[in-house]
Amino acid sequence: MNDVHIEWLGDRALLLRLGAGIDATLNACVHALAHTLREAALPGVVDIVPAYASVAVHYDPRAWSEPAASTAPGERLAQRLLEIAAALPAPARTALSAEQGTVLEIPVCYGGEHGPDLADVAGLAGVGADEVIARHVAGDYRVAMLGFAPGFPYLLGLDPALHAPRRANPRTRVPAGSVAIGGAQTGIYPRELPGGWQILGRTPLTLFDAARDPPALLAPGQRVRFRAIDADKFAWLQKSAGARPSRASREGFSAIEPCFFAADESEAGRDKSRPYDAGQPR
């Protein structure tokens, strides 16, 4: 990876920028780089945060200071990070396969009280509610990044027909587990939060629990599928203590592995109506 640029995030963090926009291949490179940087265990590096097209590196300048050196500690770390990136082969397109990586299946009760915006999304897409559900469960998703709130996954791979603008009036309370669409993105609210995304349904799974190891159900780069369940099943799963995802080992989602997957050649769709939007589900 040679096309990596530094963007300074002040004097204790920096961004490694790999590109712009929402793109599956680019995001695969992000996770490969973040993984390599974690493995490198560089001194003073306290946090490595992969996002759609960049990796943030938080560090303590003391670990990179040298007496009488002519360059700033941050410059020295940046140099080292760029060397690591340059030595890392970009995930080859031929190697990208949708088959790789454990798939985590997330049960979702679509529509009704759990999915108040299903009809609106269907209307926007010009299809029936059943078709929206069919298309949403047919998707092969990847966790592009986590952010906004602990354990909130931004998922890549939403069917372009389902892209939907945020609600004009955001809700002050979106229930925990709500599966929602904001522009080209789909995500899951890990706890009750204010939110402006269109809510299709709700999962009984616990997305984030600080007492669990790992605390977040989904790791960056994780493959995800949705499965439709009815309201009874939702209630039953919610009651049964510690609702667990089906068909996935805990190892499967604890590993932050570089993820190689099919390049999404479809319009990687950004929400053009809101050019400077934070992209946040608020």
Binding site: L9, R12, L15, A20, S54, F148
Partner: peptide, 30 residues
């Protein structure tokens, strides 16, 4: 046109309203 990326305490963001906001201790990570 932007997509979400990492931020740090002290990052001065400019939302569309034009009022800059410095992120502090409890700001989201992105």
């Amino acid at each position: 046109e932007m997509v979400s990326a990492g931020t740090a305490p002290g990052t001065l963001q400019l939302p569309p309203g034009g009022v800059p906001i410095a992120l502090t201790a409890e700001a989201p990570t992105t």
